[in-house]
């Protein structure tokens, strides 16, 4: 099976701080990949490099075999095929929910206003935000904003969606509604790369989990592998900390 996304030996440093030290992995069609690890391990940087919001120092990213490094003109086109969901939502503050979702299809994909708002309404309904289409982001809760953020990403019909800790800026009672939407689209076969500490989500839908620490991939494997017998001491230690934080139930249930 051909890879949708190929990440090849990415390196990145800020001044003397090496954030990424040679990260490589492939993401295949319909696959859900979960990346987790302690804060400062380079996960968010990695996602931003994948769609070149931050350029890497070394390495390459390929979308269906086409490099994102090649030329600047192509980069914007390639980016339309990679969705991005931000930790802080980053909804466009001056636009209503429906316009937040339709502006991409209209401006970038060249749809007419009517086509784009049809798409936007459909996507908002998919994330159960249809009734909130005419609200501004500041009038929505964090969970609602993030669901609009997901709608904005899927409205572009991307080939893969990157999620950068989509629930970590949310109050605990709002996390569920966002995870549910993510589970729904994952089950529809959306190709996803998700940076998250939500182990329940990882266990439910991820095909492979990648444990990162200090800029390198320490260990990778299926959810079962990680929950039953992670090999590395660092992964064991980190999962134990998550367990303490979120309670036994999250990682023990099958």
């Amino acid at each position: 099976m051909a890879a949708v996304l190929e990440v090849r030996d990415l390196w990145k440093s800020y001044d003397t701080l090496e954030v990424l030290k040679g990260i490589s992995f492939d993401v295949h069609e319909g696959e859900v990949k979960v990346i987790f690890g302690p804060s400062g391990s380079g996960k968010s940087t990695l996602l931003r490099i994948i769609n070149m919001l931050t350029p890497p120092d070394k390495g390459e990213v390929l979308l269906r075999g086409q490099s994102l490094m090649d030329c600047k003109a192509e980069l914007c086109k390639l980016r339309t095929r990679i969705g991005f969901v931000f930790q802080n939502f980053n909804l466009f503050a001056h636009l209503k929910a429906v316009d937040n979702v339709s502006i991409g299809p209209r401006l970038v994909l060249g749809m007419t206003k009517e086509e784009a708002s049809d798409v936007a309404i459909r996507c908002l309904e998919k994330v159960h935000m249809g009734d909130w289409a005419q609200h501004y982001p500041a009038q929505l809760s964090g969970g609602q904003q993030q669901r609009v953020g997901i709608a904005r990403a899927i409205a572009m019909s991307p080939e893969v969606i990157l999620f950068d800790e989509p629930t970590s800026a949310l109050d605990p009672e709002l996390i569920g509604e966002v995870l549910q939407v993510m589970l729904d689209i994952a089950k529809e076969g959306t190709t996803m790369v998700v940076v998250t500490h939500e182990m329940g989500f990882a266990r439910a839908v991820s095909d492979e989990m990648i444990f990162m620490d200090k800029g390198v991939v320490v260990e990778r494997g299926t959810p079962e592998h990680f929950f039953l017998n992670p090999e590395s001491e660092r992964a064991r230690h980190f999962l134990r900390k998550l367990e303490v934080l979120y309670g036994q139930a999250e990682t023990e249930k099958t």
Partner: peptide, 13 residues
């Protein structure tokens, strides 16, 4: 917020 620019670029603008 710089995130606004980032979000716009991530859509391919």
């Amino acid at each position: 917020d710089p995130g606004q620019m980032m979000a716009a670029r991530s859509l391919g603008m």
